[in-house]
Structures are given as C-alpha cells and as structure tokens.
C-alpha cells in the first residue's frame, strides 16, 4: 500500500498525486492532514516505555498510525514552510515516533535509529512557488536527515504550480516502482 498524507490547505496536491497514481496496481490510501484533528506530540515518552510502540493520545493520529505501520511507501506532501514542512505535516512526523525502533545502532560510522518495521520507503514532496536556493536546500536537508535517522530509503521532490503533467508522472513512476 502507498500511503499519501498531504496538507492541502494551500493547494490540492495530495488529491492530484493520488489521481496520478490511480492506474498503479498498488493500493493507494490518502489522508488530508489539515482536515484531521491531530494534537502535537506531548513528549510523554510513553511510546518508548510504558505503552511501548503505542501513542496514548486519542485523536485522528490513531487512524494514521496503523496505516503507516504497514504501508510499503509513505508519501508526505507539504507546502515548503521556512525550509521545513507545514505544522500539519510536522505533527504527523512528530507523532510517528511511536513507530520507531528505540534501540540505537551504528551506520556509516554514526549512531542511528530505525523504524520498528524494516523496509518502508519514505518520500517527501514539497510544494512552493519561487522558492529560493536556501529554502530548497533546507527542505532537502531535512528529508535527508529524516531518512538517515529512520534508516529508510526514499527521495525528496520539490514541485511548483508550473509543473507539467510529464514531471508529475515522473515522480509517480519513481514512487510506484520503488
């Protein structure tokens, strides 16, 4: 299953991406994070202790966590906000800690962690018109660090509203054929 979680507050990129993927034989599931009620991570540490692997905050994130836990590919679609993702998508990212492996290991000479289920692909699609070099670089840097700390494969894409259909299809092909 390919899971798309998008912030469609400033555009319609999540549904557009979903539509572009509809011919794929893989099941596509999409949620609009901005339409869900998701509270910020409370840093209670319960998911890495008392309720290991389970987030105790009862809100719409409980719809997403079971899907993220089993998906083949996770695609986060967000406006680029100060070189980061929007707060709607960041809330999802912060709460994904419940799905992480709390143990540490060494990879390429550095300490890293990983996800509880090995093999998930993780994509990030940033949306923004007229982004400057620093914004694009920061967005790419964030996703690169995410992939490193989560020990997952994936790619980052940055789109603007002038994007043509061919480019969108190229991104779709990258995701569905991984």
């Amino acid at each position: 299953m390919i899971l798309i979680i998008s912030d469609d507050n400033r555009g319609n990129w999540g549904p557009t991406l979903e539509e572009a993927m509809h011919l794929s034989e893989t099941e596509i599931v999409r949620f609009s994070a901005d339409a869900l009620q998701i509270k910020p991570c409370a840093a209670c540490n319960s998911c890495s202790g008392k309720t290991f692997g389970r987030c105790i905050i009862q809100d719409d994130m409980q719809l997403l966590l079971p899907k993220i836990a089993v998906c083949r590919s996770l695609v986060l679609v967000s406006p680029v906000v100060f070189g980061s993702v929007s707060h709607h998508i960041k809330k999802v990212m912060d709460r994904m800690a419940a799905l992480g492996d709390p143990r540490y290991r060494v990879k390429d000479g550095e300490i890293v962690k990983g996800m509880s289920r090995v093999g998930m692909n993780y994509y990030m699609v940033g949306i923004g018109d007229n982004l400057n070099e620093a914004e694009c670089s920061a967005f790419l840097h964030l996703h690169q660090e995410n992939r490193k700390i989560m020990s997952v494969k994936g790619q980052t894409f940055i789109l603007d509203s002038r994007l043509n259909r061919v480019s969108l299809n190229n991104i779709v092909q990258e995701i569905i054929h991984e």
């Binding site: 202790g49 309720t51 290991f52 389970r54 079971p66 089993v70 419940a98 709390p102 300490i111 509880s116």
Partner: peptide, 29 residues
C-alpha cells in the same frame, strides 16, 4: 550506541515489553 541501547532496553523490560516484538499497531492488526 551500546550504552544508549542498554538504557532503552532496560526501560522497556521494566514495563514487561519485548524490544524484539513487532510494533503494537502491527500486532493489533
């Protein structure tokens, strides 16, 4: 790395959890 892992594994064992077990959301499904 070993020290940090020792701390988190000990903490999980204190609550009776197996660090090797599949994630809660996978088990539940």
């Amino acid at each position: 790395t070993k020290f940090l892992t020792f701390l988190v594994v000990n903490n999980l064992k204190k609550y009776g959890h197996d660090p090797e077990a599949p994630n809660y959301y996978l088990r539940k499904q």
